[in-house]
Computed example of a mutant assay.
Amino acid sequence: MTVYNRYRTLLHQLALVRARAPGGDSPEADALLDSMDEVWDALSEGERAALERERARLAVSASDARAVPA
């Protein structure tokens, strides 16, 4: 699995976790976010830009996906 696909998988998992437990943090979401942080560092700028669009499509806010630098 490529780094890009790994991040996409984590992003989709986060969206599912957030849908199950809206408005609250969970240990599962925290673990996903930690993994996303690690994978984000290995992505190219082009991959990051593409994932920004994917994240917007999934309606995962920047505060939920803290792997995306401010």
Score class of each variant (00 low, 15 high):
M1Y: 01
T2H: 04
V3S: 13
V3N: 13
V3Y: 00
Y4K: 13
Y4W: 07
Y4F: 14
Y4G: 01
Y4V: 04
N5Q: 15
R6N: 03
R6A: 11
Y7I: 01
R8H: 01
T9P: 02
L10E: 12
L10Y: 13
L10H: 11
L10S: 11
L10M: 10
L11G: 03
H12L: 11
H12E: 13
Q13H: 03
Q13G: 01
L14K: 06
L14P: 06
A15S: 08
A15V: 02
A15R: 14
A15M: 07
A15Y: 10
L16N: 12
V17N: 02
V17G: 02
V17T: 05
V17A: 11
V17C: 00
R18Q: 12
A19C: 09
A19R: 14
R20V: 00
R20D: 12
R20N: 11
R20F: 06
A21P: 00
P22G: 03
G23Y: 09
G23L: 00
G24K: 12
G24A: 11
G24N: 02
G24H: 10
G24E: 13
D25N: 14
D25P: 03
S26M: 02
P27C: 06
P27N: 01
A29Q: 08
D30C: 09
D30L: 10
D30Y: 03
A31M: 01
L32C: 09
L32Q: 08
L32F: 06
L32T: 03
L32R: 05
L33N: 13
L33E: 15
L33R: 15
L33T: 15
L33A: 15
L33C: 15
D34M: 01
S35V: 00
S35I: 02
M36L: 14
M36T: 06
M36D: 08
D37P: 03
D37W: 02
D37Y: 07
E38G: 07
E38S: 13
W40E: 14
W40C: 02
D41S: 08
D41C: 05
A42Y: 00
A42W: 07
A42V: 01
L43E: 07
S44Q: 10
E45G: 04
E45D: 15
G46P: 07
G46T: 07
G46Q: 14
E47M: 01
E47L: 05
E47Y: 05
E47F: 08
E47H: 09
R48Y: 03
R48W: 04
R48T: 01
A49E: 15
A49S: 15
E52G: 04
R53D: 11
E54R: 02
E54D: 12
R55M: 09
R55C: 03
R55Y: 05
R57M: 12
R57P: 02
R57A: 15
L58D: 07
L58M: 09
L58I: 02
L58N: 08
L58A: 11
L58V: 00
A59I: 05
A59G: 03
V60Y: 04
S61W: 00
S61G: 13
S61V: 06
A62R: 13
S63M: 03
S63H: 06
D64I: 04
D64L: 11
D64V: 02
A65R: 10
R66S: 14
R66K: 12
R66F: 13
A67Y: 01
A67K: 00
A67G: 14
V68P: 06
P69L: 01
A70N: 10
A70P: 15
